[in-house]
Simulated assay, not measured.
Amino acid sequence: MIHEVDEGLRRLLDGAGLAASGVEVVFDAPTRDWAARRSAPTVCVFLYDIREDNTRRGSSSGEVYDEDGFVVARRSPARWFELTYLVTAWASRPQDEHRLLSQVLACLVSTDTLGPEMLTGSLAELGLTVGVDAGGTGLDAPAASDVWSALGGELKPSLGVRVRAPLAGISRVVAPPVTEGLLVRSVPRSGPDADEAARRLRYTEVSDPGQEGFGGSRDRHPQPARRRRGGDRQP
């Protein structure tokens, strides 16, 4: 997903006239060594912070269908991330750098989302909105001065660009749909059961099958006759 956001930003900036002017758009870290090797006008779009947007985390899964309309997979919900970039312009004179940076700023502030023609790969397949916020960074993102200090370079005018992009969920293949009915096969008995092995089920006067089941009641002794008052037994 990250490289697809990079490609979307490159297409956005090239479409704003940078490619026609011979300005190269790169995604390298603007270190001191990199700046010394640079020779042509360049716009550097450096990614330095990636954070998940937990407020947009979902729990429901989606279904993937084939050409016949059958469900072939289930995909977990996409998870959203904020990608923060440091955009700088590099030229032989500060005036040229400011002109380049102004051209980039005019392009970014007029763009709220990356259009479908700028999306590739999984971003294009998901069909979700990829938002662009220029001129600021996230509340938790490192400050530009801290980034320059970590890179070991000199502080330059820069733009903070934040992109909110979805990361496609994991797809799990489901079993194919059932197309045949239930098939039952019967096997003939090899022979009659022996008398000792046969057990007749008795349900008379038995309400609880117990551990042996209803068949275990055949060995149960009859209940004793109730006594009448006076000592005689009732048959």
Rank of each mutant, 00 (worst) to 15 (best):
R185V: 15
W34S: 09
S186T: 15
G136M: 06
T204I: 07
R93A: 12
R162V: 03
R220I: 09
S171E: 15
D28H: 12
G22R: 01
R233W: 14
Q211P: 10
P77A: 04
T179A: 13
R226S: 07
P222V: 01
F70Q: 11
G115N: 00
M1C: 08
E24D: 06
E205G: 08
E7Q: 10
P142E: 07
A143H: 06
R172N: 06
P142H: 06
E52K: 12
A91F: 06
E125Y: 03
G135A: 08
R79K: 02
Y203Q: 03
A20T: 15
A35W: 14
V23A: 05
D49V: 11
P192V: 12
R57D: 00
G153V: 13
G135V: 08
L101A: 01
V174M: 02
D112K: 09
A194Q: 09
H221S: 12
A19I: 01
A124W: 02
S186W: 05
R200L: 11
Y48M: 13
R75L: 05
A150C: 01
L139C: 09
G131I: 09
S217H: 15
T31H: 03
E154S: 14
W34F: 13
D49I: 10
D6P: 07
T120I: 12
G169C: 06
A197G: 09
S207Q: 13
G8T: 04
D68V: 03
T31A: 02
G69N: 04
L83P: 11
